[in-house]
Design a protein around this nucleic acid. Sequence first.
DNA 1: GTCTATAAAAAGATAGAC
DNA 2: GTCTATCTTTTTATAGAC
Lengths: 193, 193
Amino acid sequence: MYNLGMDTRTRLVNVAQDLLWERGYAATSSKEILNRANVGQGSMYHHFSGKRDLAAAALEQSAAAMRAEAEALLAADGTSVERVISYLERQRDSLRGCRMGRMTYDADVLATPELLRPVAETLGWIVGALADVVRQGIEAREFRHETDPEQLASMVVATVQGGYVLARAQQNPAAFDAAVAGAASLIRQQAGG
Amino acid sequence: MYNLGMDTRTRLVNVAQDLLWERGYAATSSKEILNRANVGQGSMYHHFSGKRDLAAAALEQSAAAMRAEAEALLAADGTSVERVISYLERQRDSLRGCRMGRMTYDADVLATPELLRPVAETLGWIVGALADVVRQGIEAREFRHETDPEQLASMVVATVQGGYVLARAQQNPAAFDAAVAGAASLIRQQAGG
DNA sequence: GTCTATAAAAAGATAGAC
DNA sequence: GTCTATCTTTTTATAGAC
């Protein structure tokens, strides 16, 4: 799974990415990472200064991946309205939640600048990128000219993030789908669809 | 703070409520609860079977409080649209986040039925109560008749939950305010405001 | 009913052999 | 570069005095 031709350092980072997504920072032990990566304790301390340092590398990599996915989605063809809706309705494993958003409820992450930074930057970047799409949509007269791009973009990202919370609470992806459908429906209406 | 005329059991539950909100379940140690409540270790094991049992009592109490707040808000005077908007724009300490919603990113909570139940029930109840308000608004012709009450209600609660995530990521309440304003604006438009 | 003392396990980190 | 052995602290839980 994790040790097919990858070097030790890469395996450690990949496993840490998965465990941070599944269990968060505080609830993930170094030992669990080492076991899953089939690596001895000494190797981690050779490549990293400790658990926090490894987690920082893992979060940076997850942040880059998430940003790349969003970048591809928002740069695709289609009208502005279509691209905003496609961000909302993109196929997601909603019970897994967001690997960046979930970190905001990990007290140790909030208290550790190098762990919080990738989270803040990634979510901030996505809101900004969506706001740009909305601005284009206003110029193209797809959205009403009174539309506040930053507010609409924030609402879209918040709906997705909050949809994860609702779905995980019910252990049912339908709760996520309902929230997203509600947002998409309102956006289509105001765009005159 | 916590030991002014309250009995030991009550103090333990109140402190546990606060710490679960601040740090979650896994990251809160029994010792931290006992210290803040000024209670010896033996007392906790006299009143509760252990940390999980105390946390379950604390979450039940927080769930009841949160539901009571929402109940009061949604039962207030005003049109349906006004009541939905008032839920969105209610004054909140947005950097603190939601004491129920945050638990969905605590792996131990998801794996422990007695801890997950109050979370699932409370968020489910709020979505249902908001959907009822929307249904009244459709009958009163405030909302378009094609409006899906469950979807709109889910979107409203998700916007709030996701707004917390955005605000905590940026450590800035403005991110929450923007998301909520975006949702309120779309709802007012579709309601012909 | 409340306390302290203690146990047993798990955590993060270090030392040093290979 | 990687491993195992060990140390220190913290965590949850139990025992038993008062």
